[in-house]
Design a protein around this nucleic acid. Structure first.
Lengths: 240, 240
DNA sequence: CGATTGCTTGATACCTCTCAACCCAGGTGG
DNA sequence: CCACCTGGGTTGAGAGGTATCAAGCAATCG
């Protein structure tokens, strides 16, 4: 299972907005998965529809009929929900190798949108279900994926319900940095507003909190879209 | 799939704290499931270990090795996580018929505790896995259960991240009341502190918010542990 | 360049938390 | 039977953290 969080790949091969790729061609597509192989490699069919999207484009909307599930080839995707007055809560960011759009029912329960420019492969849901119907190991892998998603969302619940702004932002940069953060700069592919809507804050509070963490020497911002973790231990402690 | 939320059964049959019940005996146990049959009826073995617990007793702790999953026969259970300084976030309440404790990995990711006095049946995880290994339909039902749990948690994320105290409490009483709320009083089996830790608030704010909803005529409190929904439409609108 | 978008920072408002007092119901024991 | 104690709940006053409103800055893009 990949880590669900990543830097966006800066450049994307010039692919037409939506095109079908036969298996032979797809096999040659570079697939820089976060981990060499994951469960989905055996789950997904060899062929899918490749899509290239500009930033902030809707991939599917909450309430729409489920047609496909998607794998991120490059870039970053967000899934979110909206309240009637427009308030937005981002549930997750998906990065290279991550799969999203697998739903319990017949309709999507989230809206999915591109954060950066990105490339996706879409797999028809009916194909998956058909294949899963005959393959028990495959079913177990999908189940494992679902259960892992629950764990991630449950950590998110604790963050939203019980952490301060400082703790939220510290948790966020550590999540972005991955399991073994180092001195390497960490890219922030999303806007302050995206971060705010993920952490249950306003964009101003996110900005102020980044500034405070920098003043306190825990991080260093190189531009708005890159962070260097200066004191990982302190960040860990701050996370609570 | 049952609704995950319920009143606690007030009275509990006098069962010994922990006892084993052979299949023949269990078959005669009253199992007032929220719905006549659900997916788990076919998943769970006929026999399990019946446990009767006083309020506020730990069922399992975060980080412990997974041994069993549990079905609520009577009473209410909460699952929660703690930050290092003791702050608590309740993830879910489980009521009659609900199943909890099915985990992705080998350790529990939550602490489970009894809210009220309650009766549970424990099923050894190894039995389930063994049975699932041969039964594909069963696997699909567990998967469906997991995916439904995700949806519930995702709604919780929106509540925690983007709703005000009034909206949170309104959502909470509607969730408690179930899909078709009526004039019937709704029991609150948990304390104000439990509600607060579920909604990401303090107990004082929960109390004040109940009072305000009562002043505004949306609800009526009959004692601290019972609510009558006076204006369901207004509550729905308030939910946002 | 001028316009736009994203980001930062400041001043102030407001919602929720904190600390505290008080109330009430239930249980216990004299 | 009543005094007392305890746990849960309510309410008030004040503090504090985050939101809101607003201005200004920097980078990007026609």
């Amino acid at each position: 299972m990949s880590t669900q969080f990543a830097l966006a790949n800066a450049s994307v091969p010039p692919v037409a907005p939506v095109m079908f790729v036969p298996p032979s061609r797809l096999a040659r597509l570079p697939l820089p998965a976060a981990e060499p192989t994951d469960a989905w490699d055996r789950v997904l069919p060899a062929a899918g529809t490749v899509m290239s999207l500009p930033p902030d484009r809707e991939i599917y909307g909450e309430g729409e009929k489920v047609t496909s599930l998607f794998r991120v080839v490059s870039g970053v995707v967000r899934t979110c929900k909206f309240l009637s007055d427009g308030r937005r809560q981002i549930d997750a960011f998906y990065r290279v190798g991550d799969v999203f759009g697998y739903e319990a029912g017949a309709v999507y329960r989230m809206t999915a949108e591109s954060v950066s420019r990105c490339t996706l492969v879409a797999y028809r849901r009916s194909h998956i279900d058909l294949q899963a119907a005959g393959d028990e190991a495959l079913l177990q892998q999908i189940l494992a994926h679902a259960l892992t998603g629950i764990q991630r969302t449950q950590d998110h619940v604790v963050l939203l319900g019980r952490k301060s702004a400082l703790e939220k932002v510290a948790s966020f940069v550590l999540e972005l940095a991955g399991p073994r953060p180092g001195k390497r700069p960490v890219a922030l592919p999303m806007t302050r507003q995206d971060i705010a809507d993920y952490l249950g804050l306003t964009l101003e509070t996110v900005s102020r909190t980044f500034s405070q963490l920098e003043r306190d020497g825990l991080i260093q911002l190189s531009g708005a879209r890159q962070v260097i973790l200066k004191d990982i231990t302190a960040l860990h402690d701050m996370q609570s």
